[in-house]
């Protein structure tokens, strides 16, 4: 094999990777049912993790992830190929989480006090000695609009630009929210400093 061919072989997978989601979407539009299944297989874990990190609860992950992909399935034929598929997918995920939390807050009003106390006790970080859990619980106490950019940045490894597109906010706002999130996290973890050492 000469060097030119080697180059080709090395380049080809990259080109394919770039266009892969788009080509799958095109196949889906052309009534190829298997294409959507591949998209789901490829992105479902990322979506589930974002949901988990955003809600800090494993109960509703799969339900919300299902809702996300159903929304994708319904709207995929109208995809405009202007942004990356993942940006669009995570935007939908984040919005679904937001919707869920809003509904949950409304529902909370009607939850008996006793149940609410039990929930609180269950989530009490002091009872856990696991640092990871302490930090995750601390993240979960952050307000939604601070928590999501922090999670997308520190855990999912998004760039500020991607976070801005996903959350449909300015990059400056992303920068500010992430800083504020870290400040908030520091405040929450301050009493638990000995456990963190």
């Amino acid at each position: 094999m000469n060097s030119k061919n080697k180059e080709k072989d090395l380049q080809q997978p990259q080109i394919l990777k770039l266009d892969d989601d788009f080509s799958l979407i095109k196949r889906f539009i052309d009534e190829d049912g298997s294409a959507f299944r591949i998209l789901v297989q490829r992105h479902k874990e990322k979506v589930r993790n974002i949901i988990f990190m955003t809600l800090n609860s494993s109960d509703m992950i799969d339900d919300i992830a299902q809702e996300v992909f159903i929304t994708v399935y319904k709207n995929l034929k109208n995809f405009r190929f202007e942004s990356q598929f993942t940006t669009w997918l995570y935007r939908i995920t984040v919005n679904k989480c937001k919707d869920y939390l809003r509904k949950k807050n409304v529902r909370k009003i009607f939850v008996p006090i006793k149940d609410a106390e039990e929930n609180f006790q269950y989530e009490n970080p002091v009872e856990s000695n696991d640092i990871s859990k302490i930090v995750m619980n601390a993240i979960s106490k952050l307000p939604y609009k601070l928590k999501v950019p922090l999670v997308l940045k520190d855990i999912e490894g998004f760039s500020y630009q991607e976070i801005a597109e996903t959350m449909e906010i300015e990059i400056g706002t992303v920068k500010s929210r992430i800083f504020r999130a870290r400040e908030g996290l520091r405040e929450i973890l301050k009493p638990l400093e000995p456990e963190l050492r």
């Binding site: 789901v40 589930r48 992950i61 992830a65 299902q66 159903i70 995750m136 973890l189």
Partner: peptide, 25 residues
């Protein structure tokens, strides 16, 4: 702080019947 948040995360277990449920839905 960043190190704490980054290391705090452990990936979720895969959901085995996710696609089956999804396509049924």
């Amino acid at each position: 702080l960043k190190q704490l948040t980054t290391s705090a995360y452990s990936p979720l277990d895969e959901s085995p019947y996710f696609e089956t449920r999804l396509f049924a839905e």
